[in-house]
Design a protein around this nucleic acid. Structure first.
Lengths: 347, 347
DNA sequence: CGCTATAAATGGAACGTTCCAATAAATCAA
DNA sequence: TTGATTTATTGGAACGTTCCATTTATAGCG
């Protein structure tokens, strides 16, 4: 049933009674071929069930039409949304994005990157795994393949980054909580090895500083960036002598976890404890209570990253400017009502 | 900065003072090379920043180490979990899975498949997009590339399928609702063009039939397989003169939507209306109320699909047996307490 | 009719690997 | 010592494309 040997351009040439060069030209849609010849060739292609061998072609052409998207956690819907945004742009440009998942594992990431490079990708969009070593992209840069990072950046690296304004996002979210009347605040989840963490925590701290929350009234609990991590953070925080009354969470997953832990204690997010997330994933709006979160325009960032990549490929450069996306706070139920009525001990 | 021309095997050969054949052997880890020679070659590889050109290699070898995973909706966490399960297996086998998203669009799917084929994949694992035409895989089969479907099957096709036992899953879920005392049941979401829909609906109907729920007490509402679709289904169903008191949903996303719509009406899933989902995504356990759902062992199915694929590649066949995965009902809060006390009108 | 200009089609040399057959060097048996 | 065997290494011919330089056919013009 299956055709024995794969058909090549020569088989088509024979079938159509032309030369391989002619077939090649037809395949590339060249206008140099007489229309009726082209039709004849196309028929032959159809007849023999030919499939184009892009590997062979790339051997001569030296640049492929595939770009690799390396993502640290596909099960996080946030990254899935990001990937979808990119795909739209690439598709329109005739570029095929192949997605690979590293599951937050630097070793796996190494393998995946190697594989993608061997495949001869034209560029790489990467959301680096936690714990990626600074040298991990040296070889890739040396090979002249354009790379852009999304969402996360590496401590010291000249690779362009497309990311939301984490500092500002955390700042406005914290400000929101303070304006609501909260005086003992927490920051939940994440770990200090992530640059993103430093940015978000930095925004949180700056807001506290600016708006007069003393260091003694700030609780910082590191933890996994997942529901489970969020649950643990809340339990830790509430065990303190002077527990916080509100928390900004590293991301929405952590926030969902914190809300879940609250419910387990018979408390309700919003009424008894204010929770704010980060990322504003689709689910945030539909949760119960609906989650107040920092919206980062995920799909927009994905599109931006894709555009930057295309431009880099086109201008065969490996440099590009960073892009820091605007953020906004989407206020929903989980951050609760104003507490200003019961405030009395503010400076 | 970037090295001008990409280094090839010949550059390494020159650098190390051996022949290209020797380099090739080293690259393949052949034991035929004297260890110290191999070390010297490996050093040269490192020095010149060589990256292996798999395209060129495949030209001779005729089978690559990449397999394509074509998924209809990456934003559905269910598929992301499935993908992750497969990746584990492939990684261990030294095969690199590239994931591509079709966003439920047959045209996009066509492009993606073409691209993957051109790339010379060794095999394809596909969860076909809705509305895929029966002929869409003809050429791929003709080319002798192994394909396995996951989760969904095409109406008439000899391609092996790895999927959960949809019929049985729906049956036990429906049985559960009836045992709880419900007598007017609904089936929410999905559309009849999907084979999976027919299977799940079939299970639902068979349970109704077997356990004495007359056709007049069954409400079937087709709809999008998303939260939004689920909300619409619930609204439609409750508008009827004799509304149902429980619903089996096509999948968890629909179930979440239905629960959301209930809450909007001031009703609570479990207490006022029983909801059962399908797939048992991670979120189901953490929802509020926690969702009763049919567990399909997602990661297990992914692993199974990957294994079948590897076996097909190895034995260079394009045939394999279907695999129907076991299912189980995970009972949580959303299906509510027993209603048997208040039943009086049962036959 | 001969000439040039244009259009259409073609041969052949790359591209970077693999792998077979062949060689060269080292070891062994007699 | 000689020939056979084993161990390391090496040329060279593929693999399926692209693209440049040609060739061949067609048309246009005086």
């Amino acid at each position: 049933m299956a055709s024995r040997a794969k058909a090549t351009i020569l088989d088509i040439a024979r079938e159509a009674g032309v030369s391989k060069s002619t077939v090649s030209l037809v395949l590339q849609g060249s206008g140099l071929i007489r229309p009726e010849t082209a039709t004849r060739v196309r028929k032959a292609i159809e007849d023999v069930g030919y499939v184009y061998n892009r590997g062979a072609a790339n051997l001569r052409k030296a640049h492929s039409n595939v770009i690799g998207m390396v993502i640290n956690d596909l099960t996080n819907p946030f990254f899935a949304e990001l990937a979808v945004g990119m795909e739209r742009v690439f598709q329109a440009a005739g570029v095929v994005p192949f997605i690979a998942n590293t599951a937050e594992n630097p070793v796996r990431q190494e393998e995946v990157l190697k594989s993608l490079m061997e495949q001869g990708v034209a560029g790489l969009i990467v959301s680096p795994a936690r714990g990626t070593t600074p040298g991990a992209f040296r070889r890739i840069e040396a090979a002249g393949v354009p790379v852009v990072f999304t969402m996360r950046r590496l401590p010291e690296s000249r690779i362009p980054v497309i990311a939301p304004d984490n500092h500002r996002g955390a700042f406005i979210a914290t400000e929101h909580l303070i304006r609501k009347g909260h005086r003992r605040l927490a920051f939940f989840g994440g770990s200090s090895e992530l640059v993103v963490y430093q940015q978000r925590l930095g925004g949180f701290l700056e807001a506290c500083e600016t708006l007069g929350i003393p260091a003694t009234d700030r609780t910082i609990v590191e933890g996994e960036t997942s529901r489970k991590g969020g649950m643990a953070c809340l339990d830790t925080a509430l065990a303190a002598a002077q527990p916080p009354t509100a928390a900004l969470c590293f991301n929405d997953a952590v926030a969902f976890g914190a809300m879940l832990a609250l419910r387990k204690r018979g408390l309700e997010a919003g009424a008894d404890f204010a929770v704010v997330g980060f990322d504003d994933v689709a689910e945030a709006e539909h949760y119960s209570p609906a989650l107040t979160s920092v919206a980062v325009d995920t799909a927009g960032l994905g599109e931006r990253a894709a555009h930057v990549m295309l431009k880099m490929i086109q201008s065969r450069t490996t440099r590009a400017e960073d892009h820091i996306g605007a953020v906004s706070l989407v206020v929903r139920e989980s951050s609760g009502p104003d507490r200003n009525s019961q405030v009395g001990d503010a400076a």
